[in-house]
Structure formats: C-alpha cells, structure tokens
C-alpha cells in the first residue's frame, strides 16, 4: 500500500510507457475512450462507453496467418504485446474475471491469455457512480473485488495505491521515488469515499438482482422482440459478452480472423440447412438475459452482468433493459 500524490501520476505513467504501451482513458474529439496514451490529458471522470475488454478480445483480430506452399499450409501467430491498462473500473475488472473463467476452461484460449498475461492492469475505484451504474446492487463494486495488479482510489490530493500481484508490487518497488507512505487516515478516507459512492448509486437507481430475475421471468419476450431494432449494441458494449465468429480473409494466403459476433442476430444460431433453434428476436433476447443471469453463473460461479449499465445507454429501441416493461 502506498500514497501516490496527484501530480506524480502522469510522470509515473510516462516512465512506464517507455517499457510498454500504456492504455488509458483519453478524449478523442471530446469522447472518452480507452486508447494508447502518450501524454494526452487523462479523462478519468467517466468510464468510457467501450470497456477495455477489447484489449483482450478485439472486435477483430488475427488468430493466425495461413501461408500456402505447393498445396500445403504453414501457420504464423502474432505475439502479444506488453501493455498496461490504466483506469479500468471495478465492473470491467469483474467482467474480465468472468471471461478468464470462460476462456480459461479446457481447452484454454491461448490467444486471449497471451494478451491477458502480457497486460498489467491498474484499476481505478469509483468515487462517483455513472447515472446507469448499479454494480452495488449485484453485490460488488464500486471497489475492486477481483485480484488486480494495482488498484487506485482517489482521495484528497492523490491516490491510495494497493497492490494485488507480483507485477503490481514490482511497480511499487521499482519506482519508490513516486510513492509516499500511507497512514490509517488514507484508508479511512477510502472507505468513506466508497461508502458515499455506494449511497449515491443506491439513491439514484432502484434495481436489484431479485427484481431483475423477476422481470426476466415475467417479460413478454415476443412483444419486446417486436420493438428490438437488431442493432446488437447491447452485446457490443457489454464487458461480459464475448460471442465471436471465425472467418477467413484471403486466398491462397490469408488470415483467419476472430470477429466479434452477437447472439441477437438470427444468423448467429441458424444452421447451414436453414433451421434455427432460436427463431424469433424474442427468443434471442430471452437467451441473452438467461445467459447472463442463469447460464454464466452456472458455468463460472459469477454473474454474467456486472452492473455497468452500458446496455441501457445504447439501446436503439429505447427499451427499459431492467424492468423489461413494454411501453404501449
């Protein structure tokens, strides 16, 4: 545990960026995004719309290159690159924990774990919940409940830094000049901050796990399906959603690509002969919710929803994603 004074954060990141790509929330034309950081002003107020999941499971990535020679093939894989992600929030970290269990189940997904292993995660606990946030209602957050290399909590004049892994400890040990000793009061300050964040969250949104489960049970999926505009946005912004398809690009040499997919498209489950086990949009929406609140918990022991609220921000059909009530 250590204290990082406010003004030393950027110099520390600058130093670390000599060794690896530092990814942090920055502004692009005013829009907060996770992207390569090279000294731009940090945008730490809001969690970006797109979770940092894409640094482990990009929307499109090359699984391997195939090279044809005299009718046979050889393969090339790209190496993962060393990266530090600064500013990942507890909800998105929790989502990575779910993905770790899914992609780590036998046989392990090498492509995912190559990136996972070569990435240092520095989390930022949430002092101020976003307007759609409800992680606390799901039983975790707004502080990290998962192991993380380093976690930061903004307190007066700086950050309380807690390490949770050898990589995190190493950063504290290698760069002692940036950090100050912590005191009991820093910890108290952290607890107070996070308590306030919890309260703020609870007062603005009335959502609960039993409430959501009840809504899923009662929902009129056909009626909801009729208004869904098939945009897939809720699945693309979800830090837990990870459906993908695999596609080849190029002959005779080319790339086998892994591309982000969405279970809300009818082609997702349609078989080559044309039969489709999830034929209506309502079926597909129901499956999405059941996956998050029943199937993923069965598989991983963790909820498939982390309470980030992104899906309700992006719904083109203007649905209430949690009450699942049909408007008119």
């Amino acid at each position: 545990m250590a204290f990082l004074p406010q003004e030393r954060l950027v110099p520390l990141l600058t130093l670390l960026s000599d060794r690896m790509e530092v990814v942090a929330p920055i502004l692009v034309e005013g829009v907060p995004v996770f992207a390569s950081w090279s000294g731009q002003p940090l945008a730490l107020k809001d969690n970006p719309l797109m979770p940092p999941q894409e640094f482990f499971l990009p929307q499109r990535e090359v699984l391997f290159r195939y090279i044809q020679d005299c009718g046979s093939y050889s393969f090339e894989e790209a190496a993962g690159k060393a990266r530090l992600i600064f500013g990942i929030r507890p909800c998105d970290l929790r989502a990575l924990a779910v993905l770790d269990r899914i992609f780590g189940s036998d046989p392990m997904d090498q492509s995912y774990f190559d990136k996972r292993r070569s990435t240092v995660l520095v989390a930022l606990n949430c002092n101020e919940p976003g307007e759609n946030c409800f992680c606390d209602h799901l039983g975790f957050g707004p502080t990290c409940s998962e192991a993380v290399d380093l976690q930061l909590t903004e307190i007066d004049k700086g950050y309380l830094v807690e390490s949770g892994s050898p990589a995190g400890i190493l950063i504290l040990k290698e760069h002692p000049e940036f950090f100050l000793e912590t005191s009991q009061s820093h910890l108290l300050e952290k607890c107070e901050m996070l308590g306030q964040a919890r309260e703020a969250m609870n007062s603005c949104i009335a959502r609960s796990l039993p409430g959501i489960k009840e809504a899923i049970k009662k929902a009129d999926w056909n009626a909801l399906g009729r208004t869904c505009l098939n945009c897939g946005s809720c699945t693309f912004v979800c830090p837990v959603c990870h459906c993908f398809t695999i596609q080849d690009l190029g002959v005779p040499d080319g790339e086998r690509m892994r591309c982000r997919d969405t279970c809300l498209l009818s082609g997702f489950s349609r078989m080559a002969g044309g039969a489709n086990p999830r034929i209506s949009q309502g079926d597909r929406m129901q499956n999405w919710y059941l996956d998050k609140f029943e199937y993923i918990p069965q598989r991983t022991g963790l909820l498939g929803c982390v309470g980030c609220g992104r899906c309700s921000r992006v719904c083109l059909a203007e649905m209430d994603r949690w009450s699942l009530e049909v408007k008119r």
Binding site: V31, V33, L49, P58, Q59, R60, E61, F236, R260, V314
Partner: peptide, 10 residues
Amino acid sequence: RVVGASPSPL
C-alpha cells in the same frame, strides 16, 4: 489496421 468501431456518445 481498423480492428473495430464504436459509437460516439457526443
């Protein structure tokens, strides 16, 4: 290389 796209909240 273009590896993805996302909406602009602004």
